[in-house]
Write a protein that binds this DNA or RNA. Structure first.
Length: 674
DNA sequence: TTACAGTGTCATTCT
DNA sequence: GTAGAATGACACTGT
């Protein structure tokens, strides 16, 4: 940053643009304020560069092969230093073809500027370069076009798309001259660049010689530029005098890998280095450096939505390589990149496209239909009821609740058709994408919470399996009471089949509702499982709501899910208790009926026994009286006398009248005692 | 097609 | 006053 300030204070403000163009990720939070301060405080001509242009250029929107100010760097001999500084700051190397065309164009401009300066010695270096070469550009457009054509035809493989890129870039220049020159070139009427490009297009591999052994026309340009540059009297051209344009050119091409260089490695370029190959004192790893192509084509094309569409197909390979290059990186670092999206809108697009394109491939379209509808609903004024109905309609429209099926589809979500499972076949990746899509729809979350939400649902497919299977195994057979199960074997068999049917149906219904709420929660990016929303204690639930920053809609939905879930369980319990009570009463009735029957039976037995006892007693009575004789030897009449047992065990024969009076007096005594 | 059982949900009351 | 539980009533669905 210290060197950056130095460059800028020296009038090299555009170095920051260059940094951005070649992919340096500046920490704008800490770098932009001083940059802006320097811009506003600078008295140089470069202070006219608006902060806005810097901003746009940082995102790659203004990327153009013709950097109008690069010639300034070249003239000052600072180009190599700038590029080294770029690398020292962690910048990715510029694509060689981009650099090729870019630098050549700048060299031509510089050549034109040098010619102008030679005629006008009062002109200064810091004069606005674009103003210098307005007319002179025309003189070099032909050569520049050839150079550009040559450069872009060296791009690997996809020549058609590169031609499109070339056309795009040419359109930003003077189209007529360039196209005319290209037409002549493609007809084979020209010259080294075309023949060279044709020859090299057949061989996609690039050797270092391709860049060192330039086409003759390009060499001539460089030679002329070198001469013009060295003849230019400029106060800061000391370095330039010691470094030819070719050397500078080679310096660009021989830029060492950024890992191999630091600020300490930046050697002053003095006279002693004249003619010295920079690679002799830099650890040059050209192949490795070029391999870190940041694909400025993509950055440029993404700035144009129309072009982006065309470039998507051929960007796939480069995006894939980009992902591979970032695969070993810390995801947090990746997120930190996403934090720069506000400053690098096209970087955001790049990252977003990369992620989405890779992750969205093969997803169930039904999910996106739902998500899109959700998003629309959110954008047009979110209506929870409408969304709810939307989900309900979807979930109720023949949604199969075969969880195992849906789970099996998670391994290959692309094979799951929309008509088979609705949106049940979620995979973990789908969740993350759906949240990305619904980020805005959910009312906006902090990134931290987004991460939490994503992590919450992105655990893995086991989460879905666990939830679904856990719910499948919920016991909904509360109507099968122990009393029923304890019944006879025939009823047990009957109830077992009934229980299976009932259980299956309960499972289906429960799963349906569960999935519906689950989908609602997912759609609104509610960061906790529905099951936990319902089952957790109220204090834990409130703490959870306080820990997450949820919108009113989300809180309302969460509470609604919890209320309905609680009520559902309560209703189930209520019905269970009701059935328990009914069945208990029925069982009590049965038991009482059996008890009554037993009592009746026992009563009958008792009556029978009593009768028998009475009969025996009567028989015994009569037999006893048959044995008894009075004083005269006559049998005792049982109707006039009766037997009475005394407390001491003695038995007396008493007249019945006296027995009755005595019996009455005893009863009266007992009553009085009571 | 109808009857019925099971279930979810809402409204209300009770705790 | 609030939240949960309990419950009656209703609608819906599957058998």
């Amino acid at each position: 940053m210290k060197d950056l300030k130095k460059y800028m204070t020296e009038g090299l403000l555009h170095f920051t643009i260059l940094l951005s163009l070649v992919g340096v990720r500046l920490d704008f939070d800490s770098h932009l304020p001083p940059i802006r301060e320097i811009i506003l405080g600078s008295s140089s001509a470069y202070s006219q560069i608006s902060f806005h242009s810097l901003w746009d250029t940082a995102g790659g929107a203004s990327l153009h092969p013709k950097c109008p100010h690069l010639n300034s760097y070249v003239c000052e001999g600072a180009a190599r230093r700038l590029l080294l500084e770029v690398r020292a700051l962690g910048g990715a190397p510029i694509p060689r073809t981009e650099l090729h065309a870019w630098l050549l164009q700048a060299a031509q401009d510089q050549g034109a500027a040098a010619q102008s300066n030679s005629s006008d010695s009062s002109s200064e270096l810091q004069e606005e370069p674009t103003a210098q070469g307005t007319d002179r550009d025309k003189e070099h457009d032909v050569e520049t076009a050839d150079v550009l054509t040559y450069s872009y035809l060296h791009e690997e493989n996809d020549t058609s798309s590169l031609e499109q890129d070339t056309k795009l870039r040419q359109e930003t220049r003077r189209e007529d001259n360039v196209l005319g020159r290209n037409a002549a070139c493609h007809k084979g009427q020209n010259t080294d660049p075309c023949t060279e490009s044709n020859r090299n297009s057949a061989n996609s591999s690039h050797s270092l010689d391709e860049f060192i052994h330039l086409p003759a026309e390009t060499e001539n340009i460089l030679e002329g530029m070198n001469e013009n540059a060295t003849s230019t009297a400029q106060p800061t051209s000391e370095i330039l005098q010691s470094n030819s344009m070719r050397e500078i050119w080679q310096d660009f091409l021989f830029l060492p890998d950024l890992q191999d260089i630091s600020l300490e490695d930046i050697h002053p370029v003095g006279n002693g280095n004249n003619g010295l190959n920079p690679s002799s004192y830099f650890h040059v790893n050209f192949t490795q450096a070029v391999s870190q192509d940041v694909s400025l084509h993509e950055a440029m094309l993404r700035s144009d939505p129309a072009l982006r569409r065309n470039s998507e197909t051929r960007n796939f390979s480069s995006e894939e390589s980009f992902q591979q290059s970032n695969s070993s990186r810390n995801p947090e670092a990746f997120l930190s990149e996403a934090n720069l999206t506000g400053l690098f809108p096209y970087a955001e697009n790049s990252i977003g496209n990369l992620t989405n394109q890779d992750l969205l491939s093969g997803f169930d379209e039904n999910i996106f239909d739902e998500i899109n509808l959700m998003s629309l609903a959110m954008e047009e004024g979110f209506d929870p009821v409408g969304v709810s109905e939307l989900f309900e309609a979807d979930s109720d429209s023949g949604l199969s609740i075969s969880s195992s099926h849906s789970l099996s589809s998670t391994s290959d979500s692309s094979s799951t058709s929309a008509g088979e499972e609705g949106a049940v076949g979620y995979s973990s990746d789908v969740e993350s994408i759906s949240y990305d899509h619904l980020e805005s729809a959910a009312g906006g979350r902090l990134l931290e919470h987004n991460k939490c939400c994503r992590l919450e649902y992105q655990v893995d497919s086991d989460f879905c399996e666990e939830l679904l299977f856990e719910h499948v195994h919920h016991n909904h057979t509360y109507s099968l009471l122990p009393q029923q199960l304890k019944s006879g074997p025939e009823q047990c068999h009957l109830w077992s089949t009934e229980a299976c049917k009932l259980k299956n149906r309960c499972d289906r219904d429960a799963d349906k509702m569960f999935i519906r709420d689950e989908r609602r929660a997912r759609a609104l990016r509610i960061p906790f499982p529905v099951e936990d929303i319902v089952s957790m204690p109220v204090d834990v639930f409130n703490n959870l709501l306080s820990q997450y920053y949820l919108t009113d809609i989300q809180i309302s939905v969460v509470r609604d899910i919890r209320r309905r879930g609680k009520n559902k369980v309560a209703a189930q319990n209520c019905r269970k208790r009701k059935l328990d009570a009914i069945l208990n009463l029925e069982n009590d009735v049965c038991q009482l009926q059996a008890q009554k029957a037993n009592l009746l039976k026992e009563k009958a037995q008792c009556n029978k026994s009593v009768s028998q006892m009475k009969q025996k007693l009567s028989d015994l009575y009569h037999s006893i009286f048959s044995w008894l004789r009075d004083e005269q030897g006559r049998p005792v009449n049982p109707s006039r006398y009766a037997l009475r047992c005394h407390s001491d065990g003695r038995i007396f024969i008493v007249p019945r009248g006296a027995f009755k009076l005595e019996h009455k007096t005893e009863e009266q005594k007992e009553k009085k005692q009571k």
